[in-house]
Amino acid sequence: MIDENDVRHIAELADVTVTSGELKKFTSQFNTILEYFDTLDCVEGVTNERTDRCNNFREDEVTHSLPQEELLANASEKEEGFFKAPKVM
């Protein structure tokens, strides 16, 4: 069982803010869903082989980059060829 504090912690970890209404709702929904996920507890086996395929490479060849103005075209804030982001602490 997880409680509202756990959900608040998960929200922080996921960098989303949840309202107190959402918090209540999510807590009960997550408990139902996580309980359902517990069906995985009975799964046996240790191998975790993702795929039998491997080694897909490209050669070390230079291809065109996007022109600076195209790269920046979707940005809402830019300055002298840079993207502008909020300050970091």
């Binding site: 490209r58 060849e61 291809t63 790269l71 060829g81 840079f82």
Partner: peptide, 17 residues
């Protein structure tokens, strides 16, 4: 990706895709 690593003499965001 295929962007060139030789970026040091160029302006910002000119070697990106």
């Amino acid at each position: 990706c295929g962007c060139s690593t030789d970026y040091r003499d160029d302006g910002p965001n000119t070697h990106s895709c």
